[in-house]
Design a protein around this nucleic acid. Structure first.
Lengths: 159, 159
DNA sequence: GGAATATTACTCGGATACTTTCTGTCCGAGTCTACCAGG
DNA sequence: CCTGGTAGACTCGGACAGAAAGTATCCGAGTAATATTCC
């Protein structure tokens, strides 16, 4: 899985601490973890295309969450960055070669593909069940200052 | 996930139909699905390094399963090809930036990494629970001729 | 003083290089088979 | 006919290119705030 996913999840989490009437520019979000600004911007664009965040141009512009943190799952973020393709894609190689034309192969679903699809579903189920809101609550429990600290940094009250 | 995984699983399945006193050369296995021989050989080498198949050189050589199909899980095959790294790797970016030095970040485990690790475990559990033996039984039920047909092709009785 | 306007600075967005991984190919080292010669 | 040796061919194994995806960067279009000018 690409590194952009990690950045995207962290950024969504940071945006969840932003006052709802403000937007945070990419540079601010990037500075929180010393990430390359332009490349993080690319990931945020992907989130915007997927409708998870909304973007606003110009001064005082930037990104904000497009809906409540409780309604953004980790699966949403992963698919926004990585695309909708499953990790295992069946190329139907069984339809090639000397026995490829046999009708059995077309009627029945590929057993191997089924097994991997099942695993993929288990993985998706887990990611769908965890939201940015869940992470927000968990992190605030572990590190209480993080909410105010991050908000202050993003709105520009800290240097 | 790389395409080699699909080839490797199919090849393990084909090898499970091979008489236990024989070995199948890469060229035979590749011809079953019109795969590039040399590249499939590369994947089989990876399986050999992982101890899933054993290789024998020279005439009448090739590959055979190193243990019973029931004791080779899909997770074994995936890890042999893709390596042991999890799909999501936490780079600990939270330890960088203005708040990176805060001791909170080091004591507590990364919440985001935890969530992805949980999903990865669900995925692994599913793959560990499915073996080449399971696939063999399922395919034989769907397409009874496949066992004798594949065996005949691999031992070279068919052209 | 207030309002309309022009300027300026800031932000996103897509187009453009560079790096790593994946895909595909080639040739050499080792080994087993089969043939051949000699007893 | 049997035994030993030799040549041959077959197979794996790792080293070597090409293609695709991921990573990183830059500059232009658009926008909102600000400063300026005029009434």
């Amino acid at each position: 899985m690409s590194e952009g996913v990690e950045w995207a999840v962290h950024s969504c989490l940071n945006l969840s601490w932003l006052p709802s009437d403000r937007a945070a520019p990419t540079a601010r979000l990037a500075s929180l973890f010393d990430l390359p600004t332009a490349y993080l911007n690319k990931q945020l664009q992907a989130l915007a295309r997927a409708g998870l965040v909304s973007s606003v141009s110009g001064p005082r512009g930037g990104f904000r969450l497009a809906r409540e943190p409780e309604r953004i799952s980790l699966l949403d973020v992963v698919r926004a960055i990585e695309g909708p393709e499953p990790s295992f894609r069946c190329r139907e190689i069984r339809q090639q070669g000397p026995f490829g034309e046999e009708p059995d192969n077309h009627r029945q679903a590929c057993t191997i593909a089924n097994a991997f699809a099942e695993a993929e579903l288990a993985w998706q189920r887990q990611l769908r069940g965890t939201t940015i809101g869940d992470l927000k609550a968990a992190v605030e429990r572990k590190v209480p200052k993080v909410a105010t600290r991050t908000r202050a940094w993003l709105v520009g009250e800290a240097p």
